[in-house]
Design a protein around this nucleic acid. Structure first.
Length: 123
DNA sequence: TCCTTGACTCAGA
DNA sequence: CTCTGAGCCAAGG
């Protein structure tokens, strides 16, 4: 179970929802920040319009703070590439995904048509 | 309180 | 295909 937060803001509650979704992504599949955001409802107090614009970044924020049991490596950007983190480390992400069966082309890009996770309802 | 920054995305050149 | 700029909202210094 995720760690307990004594004073969980809505943002943190949203993070937990993101982690829950990410945990459902099977090995060998990837998803994008914006797509994951579309699976979730906007955090309380945020308008749908604002959420569509901010959602992807919120998911990114959730990844930045995700627990160890979350397969954050399966989340990439809408361009099919690994997002550069603040201190690098994208190289490691690519290696992990390759070990799971995800293929990268010469431009270090994933073919989303083949490896994109269909969604939480796919099961 | 103002200013900077951010694991994003889309459209245009 | 790659590079830029704009849009968007919240957190932290």
């Amino acid at each position: 179970m995720p760690p307990q937060y004594t004073a969980p803001p809505d943002r943190l509650a949203f993070f937990e929802l993101v982690w829950e979704i990410v945990r459902q992504i099977p090995p060998g599949r990837v998803s994008t920040y914006g797509r994951l955001a579309s699976y979730l409802p906007p955090p309380k107090g945020m308008s749908m319009l604002a959420y569509e614009a901010r959602g992807a970044r919120l998911v990114g924020g959730a990844m930045a703070a995700c627990p160890a049991d979350v397969p954050w490596q399966r989340v990439i950007n809408a361009q099919g590439k690994v997002s550069l983190r603040s201190g690098g480390g994208g190289e490691e992400q690519r290696v992990i995904l390759e070990s799971e069966g995800v293929e990268f082309d010469e431009k270090e890009r994933v073919d989303l048509a083949r490896f994109l996770w269909e969604g939480p309802s796919q099961d």
